[in-house]
Design a protein around this nucleic acid. Structure first.
Lengths: 246, 246
DNA sequence: CTCCATCCTTGACCCAGATCAATTGGGATC
DNA sequence: GATCCCAATTGATCTGGGTCAAGGATGGAG
């Protein structure tokens, strides 16, 4: 874990702490953000933004899960990011969206109109600073993922993904990194495949193999228990601490 | 090309324009940067920084080419970025390097000690702003590359890499995007393989195949002519404008 | 000019994961 | 409980790219 530990502040109505808004935001600034803030909701499966479309807001996910994907004309798609609650979307200073943003579950987003947000950012340097931090974290995560995509085997890929989801889940809920972990997969096998650069059949087969080998336990299709986190990380072939934020 | 067109300023002695230093830097700021600036040189093949090592400077490449790589214990390596002149290395606000930085050719870097640079950054918001721009560009490039690594065939991967190098080369030199392009590959077949998640044999075979099919021409091993850029982009399977910065 | 090292090419073979094709299972609806 | 639907599993087969191995080109040192 390499991210600096900011104490995030909740904006008035959101049940989450926006990572873009840090402890250094004073009351005036928060009020100003509040004034241009509004909510959007999307249903599972809905596309929030199409790549290339103009995008007149930025914002963060309040609840639910969304994905960033890129697509080729023939339909091959690659997920390039996973948006969990508190994650930020949108690029200040550019009009068009770079990726498709798709709601994987029902989601709520807290949005700021882009123009006022940019103006506020220009006035309050520490917001830009905080965004830089977050963007650097995402860049690290993306590059970590390049290693997964380019060099890992199918089994290692699956283990890497499970490890990341387990860790994020743990850090969002309790905080204590217990040795045994239990969570629900927020992704279909197909979405996992798109994230990992595999086919859904291969994902399914490797999940079964990991189950047979006792690395994971499955209750139903989505509910996962990891009896030994160290074992899973071994399977992922990770040398790094894996302190990822993606 | 989505990067805003800053007019970069040359620092006194460097023959390049530092992207981190933008037109809005005033004389005082430039002088302050100059005061903490120094040069480092590395020979081809030398490792500039090992992942995890403490890194007490940030800086940008003045001449030559370096790569960012990640490695697994068993030696599998994945290149996660390519550093060309004017590219920035180092993360303000963190101690350890996240990747190996390796000089591919002899390189000269213009470095700033980290502490003073951070202090200057805190004082002058537009430097943080500029770094945010650059980091977002890199993030876009990394995510574009995830599509390449996860979903493209070997032939498409090679074509994608050649297209990127051709474009960067063109934008660094003349500026005019001629239809016919000529350049020298800055990478060995092995480095290309590490970038693309392939083996060097596959790279070699696909280069030969592209040559046989008239997509590229080769004079010697490294000198490449692209008779028809459109054709190459077709081969890369790119729908996007491909305005990459990586 | 020869030697040597490094980088590159090409061939033969193999295997991990893709592809094509049935089933199976489990939750919602009637 | 019966039916439908969609996610997931599992099997059979194929193939792109990896692996192993044997040369070939190029260039610098002596």
């Amino acid at each position: 874990m390499n991210a600096p530990t900011f104490t995030h502040i909740k904006c008035a109505d959101c049940p989450i702490r926006h990572r873009a808004v840090c402890a250094r935001c004073n009351a005036d600034e928060l009020e100003e953000l509040d004034a241009v803030k509004y909510y959007r909701t999307y249903e599972a499966g809905q596309t929030v933004i199409w790549a290339g479309d103009p995008m007149n807001f930025v914002g963060s996910v309040v609840s639910g899960i969304a994905t960033l994907t890129q697509t080729m004309e023939d339909g091959r798609t690659q997920m390039v990011g996973l948006l969990l609650p508190s994650d930020f979307v949108g690029r200040p200073g550019r009009d068009g969206a770079a990726y498709n943003v798709v709601a994987t579950s029902d989601i709520v987003m807290c949005c700021f109109r882009k123009k006022p947000f940019e103006e506020l950012m220009a006035k309050t340097p520490h917001i830009a600073h905080r965004l830089l931090e977050m963007t650097l974290d995402e860049l690290d995560a993306a590059r970590e993922w390049m290693l997964v995509l380019g060099r890992k085997t199918a089994r290692e890929k699956i283990a890497s993904l499970l490890a990341i989801i387990a860790r994020r889940d743990a850090s969002l809920s309790s905080g204590g990194a217990a040795d045994q972990m239990v969570f629900d997969l927020p992704l279909t096998r197909e979405a996992m495949a798109d994230y990992l650069g595999l086919t859904l059949e291969t994902v399914s087969r490797q999940m079964s193999a990991l189950k047979k080998d006792g690395v994971i336990e499955l209750q139903g299709k989505r509910h996962v228990t990891i009896p030994d986190m160290g074992r899973l990380i071994d399977e992922a072939g990770d040398d790094s601490d894996g302190g990822m934020l993606m």
